[in-house]
Simulated scan of single mutants.
Amino acid sequence: MPHVNIKHFPRDLDPEAQKALVEGLVGLITQAFDVSETTVSVALEPVEPAAWRDRVVLPELHNRSDLLARRPAYDIA
């Protein structure tokens, strides 16, 4: 039952762009985890730039750095 939550700076994706993003992710996830696409959920969560450090960097990147499969190029300390 993979779930992906993408936190991102606010950006309006038109329905076609959002659909393409989600379908691409679901395709990769189903292949990598060998699951049905009906088991995959995807959330898109906008986070204001001013809140990025408190809502993403510290709790998700710094405090859980052992789970990162890919680190960002910016400082997460």
Rank of each mutant, 00 (worst) to 15 (best):
G24I: 02
P49I: 02
V57R: 05
L61F: 03
I76L: 00
D12C: 08
P46S: 10
G24S: 01
A51D: 13
R11S: 11
R64F: 00
E60F: 07
A69R: 11
A17V: 14
P2M: 05
A32V: 10
H8E: 04
Y74P: 01
V40I: 12
E16G: 01
E45D: 09
L68E: 03
L25Y: 12
A17M: 11
R64L: 00
H8N: 07
K19T: 09
P59S: 07
H8V: 05
G27I: 00
E37N: 11
A20M: 07
E16Q: 08
P49M: 03
Q18I: 01
A77T: 08
P10F: 00
D14M: 10
E16R: 14
R11D: 09
G24W: 05
L44R: 03
Q18E: 15
H3F: 15
A32Q: 14
H3Q: 11
G24R: 06
R71Q: 09
T38C: 04
F33W: 15
A50Y: 00
N5D: 14
T38L: 14
R55K: 15
M1E: 14
R53A: 12
V4C: 02
R53W: 13
I29L: 09
V40M: 08
L61T: 03
D66I: 02
A51K: 13
S36M: 02
D14T: 09
N5F: 05
D66G: 03
R71D: 04
A73E: 08
N5A: 15
N63A: 10
W52S: 07
A69G: 09
E60R: 01
Q18M: 07
M1Y: 12
T30S: 12
E23K: 15
R11F: 11
E45V: 13
G24H: 04
H62S: 08
T39L: 14
D75E: 09
A73Y: 02
S65Q: 11
E23Q: 15
H8I: 01
R55P: 00
F9M: 06
N5H: 09
E48S: 11
P49Q: 04
D34R: 10
K7A: 09
T38H: 12
R11K: 14
V26P: 08
A20L: 05
A32I: 06
D34L: 03
E45T: 13
Q18F: 01
V26R: 11
A73S: 14
L61G: 00
R55T: 12
V26E: 10
L61A: 04
I29A: 02
